[in-house]
Design a protein around this nucleic acid. Structure first.
Ligand code: FES
Ligand code: FES
Lengths: 144, 144
DNA sequence: GTTATTTCGGATAAAAATATCCTATTTATA
DNA sequence: TATAAATAGGATATTTTTATCCGAAATAAC
């Protein structure tokens, strides 16, 4: 469904959010450990999210990654997915036609469009706060 | 969503079905042309579908690929997707956890499971006949 | 200021997915 | 029987994705 990069990006964002909620900044090393991802690859993805202004970073000793508290509840999963994997999951044709066009539909257009729109709605209506709270309370998990 | 291999496999199957419906056997070259896919790569995928007994092949002059008429309506998209991409789209965790486990859910488990099950239902309830007929009647298209 | 820590960014490497090439085998027709 | 057409399958090549490495820059603490 999502690329590895996107999975790591989502998990990292949720982990950062769950810590920023408590005012704690977290380092790359800690993030990679907690979400069970390759350190250097995760660094690239976090840099990407910083460039997209979805998370923010602080260089140097005691630096790390964080999300402004007031922003946690307004960051949608769709922003992260879009930043890393692009919009093909929202707009692309399920059978890989160059474009998804109502007037020149592929054989599964109608069926696929329904699913795709539900996925879109889900991602656009799920924010980091909800997910971060479940991590904090131990209801959900980021690894194992 | 699906791999390129799977997209080609789905399109090829639909094209074969639409011809087998008329009792016409089609060659690799014709298939690749009509679904706009790389010939040799498509060959590999078709071989795979033959091994999975989803389509059948006839070697030699006037050979090609076909689907027994009586089977066209009973072949579900899910069989093709499962043969090529495996079952991770049905059973795998949306965030890439090793397994999707109700008792140890990832942060998006509940939301994702809903979408995943709808995709599953859609693929399990869509058969080649429906799609082939739309191709034949010009309602849907396999390329451009 | 020096040092330790940490992100940033470029270069490179490894693995997986996608794609091509070539030969063998099969089969219908002439 | 010879020929042409077509799938089967192994080997190889290319591209993309995933992953690693290293030096530069920034920053806090001492
Ligand atoms: S054309 Fe394929 S999903 Fe719309
Ligand atoms: S655990 Fe992630 S989808 Fe079920």
């Amino acid at each position: 469904m999502f690329s590895k990069a996107c999975e790591y990006g989502l998990k990292a964002s949720i982990y950062i959010a769950s810590n920023s909620y408590d005012g704690k900044r977290v380092s790359l090393k800690e993030i990679a450990k907690k979400i069970d991802s390759p350190v250097a690859f995760t660094a690239k993805i976090l840099q990407d999210l910083v460039r997209h202004k979805i998370i923010s970073s602080v260089k140097g000793a005691y630096g790390g990654f964080e999300i402004a508290k007031k922003d946690i509840s307004s960051i949608k999963l769709s922003q992260i997915v879009n930043a890393i994997d692009g919009d093909s999951i929202y707009n692309g044709c399920g059978l890989g036609l160059h474009v998804c066009d109502e007037n020149h539909p592929c054989p599964v257009h109608d069926q696929f469009k329904t699913i795709r729109n539900q996925l879109k709605d889900m991602l656009e209506n799920t924010n980091l706060e909800q997910l971060a709270l479940d991590i904090k309370s131990g209801v959900s998990f980021l690894k194992l």
